[in-house]
């Protein structure tokens, strides 16, 4: 377990460096985009290795404990944002906003107990992977939208207008954020449907208004 955690620490360090470089770049009016992307990808590679080692050791994916769920969410959010960062060059400056948001989750991950949990027999179904996979896309799309929306809000509030000037105009960012949220809505709905199928098979009810389901519905 120690090796997994050391590799995870290295991944977290790479993410933090990516965030710091992104923020410093915006503040100083520089565009260190290649460095940021390289650091994010290095972090992703290291975290993938850490998750893979843990998966191999425990015989199940990161689905059980809070540590595992946070770790898997950090991985998927970084994967989604890295993809957006790579493919949509015009919005790269949003890394200065998105990465500090990720720091919160990284901090939570670092204080979570990395011990293992019991893998319940009800998790032994392909619907688990479908449900979680769809949820990852939903969260990733929403993270990109959050970054874009924060830029619009900051401009409205008169914060960093000059430093964020090379980003597209707010109506364009709004349109892109709306599209990301639309993707999020579709995948969130699909995630709920897959979760309902899983719940029906595993617990004999597709919906029970438990706290997790209720919050997912409200979202």
């Amino acid at each position: 377990m120690e090796q997994e955690l050391q590799i995870l620490w290295a991944a977290v360090t790479a993410y933090v460096l990516a965030g710091v470089v992104a923020v410093v770049g915006v503040v100083l009016g520089k565009r260190p985009e290649r460095s940021v992307l390289a650091l994010m990808l290095a972090g992703l590679a290291l975290q993938t290795l850490s998750i893979g080692l843990r998966w191999d050791r425990l015989g199940h994916g990161p689905f059980i404990t809070m540590f595992e769920i946070l770790c898997s969410n950090v991985w998927s959010l970084m994967a989604a944002y890295s993809l957006a960062y790579w493919r949509i060059a015009r919005i790269r400056a949003t890394a200065a906003i998105v990465m500090p948001l990720m720091f919160v989750m990284l901090g939570w991950l670092m204080v979570a107990h990395p011990g293992e949990g019991h893998y319940p027999p009800t998790y032994n179904t392909p619907w688990l992977y479908i449900h979680i996979g769809l949820g990852k896309v939903f969260l990733g799309a929403v993270l990109v939208a959050v970054g874009l929306s924060c830029v619009i809000l900051m401009r409205h509030a008169g914060i960093g207008r000059q430093r964020l000037a090379h980003l597209p105009a707010s109506p364009q960012l709004d349109e892109l954020a709306f599209r990301c949220m639309a993707i999020g809505l579709i995948f969130h709905t699909l995630m709920l449907i897959a979760g309902a199928i899983w719940a029906q098979d595993a617990w004999g009810r597709y919906w029970a208004w438990d706290p997790l389901e209720t919050w997912a519905f409200i979202t």
């Binding site: 364009q172 349109e175 599209r179 709905t189 449907i193």
Partner: peptide, 30 residues
């Protein structure tokens, strides 16, 4: 109602995705 619920959910998601697809492919975001 279970199988009918699933069918209606699938139809709703596919039609919503098709709506967004048509809307978003009509012009680029920028």
């Amino acid at each position: 109602t279970l199988p009918w619920l699933l069918a209606a959910c699938a139809l709703a998601v596919v039609s919503l995705a098709a709506h967004f697809w048509r809307k978003f492919t009509a012009k680029p975001w920028d």
